[in-house]
């Protein structure tokens, strides 16, 4: 199981997956906006999305857990 954390403070502008989805390594999970730039947060490894801890429009801090993958 692994936590996907925010690499920097920013705003969640899109959540690309749902709980239960199967994802492959490097698939987009979340689109985060910081410094007026959109950045995809990708899956660190293949697995199933167990939990999504943020939603569209949330402001997140660095190191906040965004998604849990199993």
């Amino acid at each position: 199981m692994s936590d996907v954390t925010a690499p920097m403070a920013g705003k969640v502008i899109d959540v690309k997956v749902n709980v239960g989805d199967t994802v492959n390594e490097d698939d987009d999970l979340i689109i985060l906006e910081a410094m007026k730039m959109e950045m995809p947060i990708v899956a660190p490894a293949s697995g199933t999305v167990k939990e999504i801890k943020c939603k569209k429009g949330d402001s997140v801090g660095a190191d906040d857990v965004l998604v849990v993958i199993e």
Binding site: P7, A34, M35, M39
Partner: peptide, 26 residues
């Protein structure tokens, strides 16, 4: 600012999408 930092981020992510250089480049 911040165009050059964004370029660092984009280039870094191109070679490893798990790499976030934006804040380091700031």
């Amino acid at each position: 600012v911040p165009m050059a930092a964004r370029v660092s981020q984009i280039m870094g992510a191109k070679y490893d999408p798990k790499n976030f250089l934006l804040m380091h480049a700031m």
